[in-house]
Design a protein around this nucleic acid. Structure first.
Length: 336
RNA sequence: UUAUCACCAGAACUCC
């Protein structure tokens, strides 16, 4: 069963979680008895696929196998229901659980925020017996995601008052809120703080810092952080390219893009939005068209509505209205 | 041997 579990784990965490479910069925057919680990991996696969009907079946197995007192597994089930849209089922299970831990609460809080139900999330947050850093972070990130950055920052203040230590993930949320608000003063303070903690080595932290400085109009600092990063991801590059475009530095954006491809990093669809945006603001019609073509030809990226939007924008700004109109009429996807 | 919670980048319109 251990071997099966290991295989299940990697499938559940890989890019084809439905294979984990298939394997689980084979395991059952082979009349092996799943243990708690087995169940947790299938449930994880279900969560990732938003497969709540299979998830419910697995929940049934868990009950039949007598695993209901395993808190770890119960939490996984709460996660499965809530992340796949069945908040009511999740809440019902939560309500009748004989014991809960901070993770149980965090899961439900996070999922309420994901579905935009900040009031419900906050109510749970107020009710929970003890809060971990994750609880605070989940709420802060939730407010950011719901476009309430001021609330996020207010909560961050309360977190400090409560004496909880923010970690890397927390600061990402706070920095994102600063970016949305253009609150560079607080952003800088957080930046100082994270330098002291050594968090500046974290790629996601740096990416968010870059984004924050860009949104606050401080391109130089963003660029400096980008240059000094020990390791960059596609997000780092895309943020920087998009930032340069945002500030009218199309040449530099295009230059950075070619540097990126030279080192063999593959752009993704977001990178192309930034690039096309740069072209559109500089009136680089031909370049824009070339990048648009290269996107699919060289990188196999299927353009989405936002890419078509960029081209329409590019053509229209350049005064090529007729062509823009033709382009819309010929789009293979439905224009919005 | 293995399991559960939080975090990063993107166009156009409006406002700033």
């Amino acid at each position: 069963i251990i071997l099966w579990n290991s295989a299940l784990k990697s499938l559940a965490e890989g890019d084809s979680p439905c294979d984990a479910i298939r394997l689980f069925h084979r395991l059952c057919d082979a009349s092996l008895t799943p243990d708690t680990f087995t169940c947790s991996f299938v449930l994880k696969a279900c969560s990732r696929l938003m497969e709540n009907s299979i998830g419910r079946t697995v929940h049934g197995y868990v009950v039949r196998l007598g695993f209901t007192s395993d808190l770890f597994l119960q939490n996984t089930i709460v996660h499965m229901y809530s992340s796949s849209g069945l908040m009511d089922d999740a809440q019902r299970l939560f309500d009748k659980m004989p014991q809960r831990d901070v993770v149980t609460w965090n899961i439900l809080i996070t999922q309420y925020t994901k579905w935009g139900e900040m009031e419900a999330a906050h109510e749970l947050f107020d009710q929970m017996p003890e809060r971990s850093v994750t609880s605070w972070t989940a709420m802060i990130a939730g407010y950011v995601q719901c476009k309430k950055p001021a609330e996020a920052i207010r909560l961050f203040g309360q977190m400090e008052e409560a004496g909880a230590e923010p970690n890397e993930v927390t600061v990402v949320g706070v920095l994102a809120a600063c970016a949305d608000l253009g609150a560079m003063d607080l952003g800088r303070r957080v930046h100082d703080y994270l330098n002291q903690c050594g968090y500046q080595k974290n790629v996601r932290v740096c990416n968010t810092l870059i984004d924050m400085y860009i949104k606050c109009g401080c391109l130089e600092v963003a660029q400096k952080i980008f240059n000094e990063m020990q390791e960059r991801t596609i997000v780092s590059w895309s943020a920087m390219i998009g930032g340069l475009a945002m500030h009218g530095k199309a040449e530099e954006a295009l230059g950075l893009f070619s540097k990126m491809t030279q080192i063999g990093l593959r752009p993704n669809n977001v990178t192309f939005v930034g690039l096309l945006h740069a072209c559109s603001h500089m009136g680089l019609v031909d370049e824009g068209r070339r990048y648009f073509a290269s996107m699919t030809r060289d990188y196999g990226i299927i353009p989405k509505i936002e890419h078509y939007g960029c081209i329409v924008d590019l053509l229209s700004r350049a005064g090529l209205l007729q062509e823009a109109y033709e382009f819309i009429k010929n789009m293979p996807i439905k224009p919005n």
